[in-house]
Design a protein around this nucleic acid. Sequence first.
DNA 1: TTCTTTTATCGTAATATTGCAATATAATAA
DNA 2: TTATTATATTGCAATATTACGATAAAAGAA
Lengths: 109, 109
Amino acid sequence: MGLTKSEIFTNEQNQIASLAKAFAHPARVAILQHIINSNTCICGDLVDEIGLAQATISQHLRELKNIGLIKGNIEGTSVCYCIDENNWTEAKHIISQFLDYESKNTNCC
Amino acid sequence: MGLTKSEIFTNEQNQIASLAKAFAHPARVAILQHIINSNTCICGDLVDEIGLAQATISQHLRELKNIGLIKGNIEGTSVCYCIDENNWTEAKHIISQFLDYESKNTNCC
DNA sequence: TTCTTTTATCGTAATATTGCAATATAATAA
DNA sequence: TTATTATATTGCAATATTACGATAAAAGAA
């Protein structure tokens, strides 16, 4: 047990859940907000601004990169991270569509 | 370790992460979609329609109820679950606002 | 009352996540 | 070359999540 039964759900359900999981930790939310709001997006800056160890930040960055929300460009010894705009927009659409429902069941509950 | 350091993040960051966590499992996405799309929202129907044990569905329902996305009304021996429209709308706004960013850094990366 | 139905909770095993020290890797500087 | 700097990876401990059988609780039926 303890293993999510992905195979019994639709691709859409699994995709929504995967995207939501990327946003489901405050450190990753903070990382994304920092990348969005600052003009620089150097990994080391994130370590300074967020109070977590370098290894931890790097791990969260990898998760965000794996799901495609950010991408990293090597600049000398540093890495500049930024939002992958295409994937971000797609993610926004998928989640918005899921959240955007018009109530039909005014008689229920 | 293994404990999220909530205290180093803003309330907004923690709130976004908590909401996202509710959507971060396909079973909960499926439950919400079923509640939204069907006219009935009886717990037992969800157990039949989704291929998970009754205890597991009940556990997911509790998580969704705890965060306020759904509410349950007792109807005889069954429980009718439905979306908490006010909280759902609020959650939608919080997440949409987070996802809705206009790119400023065309020169970055 | 007892039986049935429905949902919730408990207990537990398996797996996943979080966090960090230590270390490895890669690029540049001296 | 050897240092230095920045990031990634490894390994591990602590905690959280997922899933389900067993059982409890609550309401109605017999």
